[in-house]
Amino acid sequence: MSEHHAAPAEEPSGERRPYGVTVTLQPSNKTEVLPVRSVLQLLNKLQIRPTTVLVIRDGGLLTPDQRLNHGDEIIVRTVVSSG
């Protein structure tokens, strides 16, 4: 698990950005920033079953119990093929 700090990051201007995790949904490639602190919270927020997607951070897979941190970039890729 990566050791990112969970506290909001400070901008060069000195302002603090609100806590957020950037999520990209595949295959639609829609992106949104969500205030979630674990993979399970993220999936609940998106109303997605854990066994229907891969959750990817920094090229590695995450299980639902793993923590997320401010500034994380997460890919949520559906595993269900159409047809």
């Binding site: 890729r77 269900v80 159409s82």
Partner: peptide
């Protein structure tokens, strides 16, 4: 499908995951 997707990812298989543009609303999905 979940187990196969995880295995494919972990083996570094660069699979084609975009859905077929004609398959929208397929009943099996």
């Amino acid at each position: 499908e979940y187990e196969t997707a995880n295995w494919s990812f972990l083996q570094g298989i660069p699979y084609h995951y975009a859905p077929c543009p004609y398959s929208k609303g397929a009943s099996f999905t």
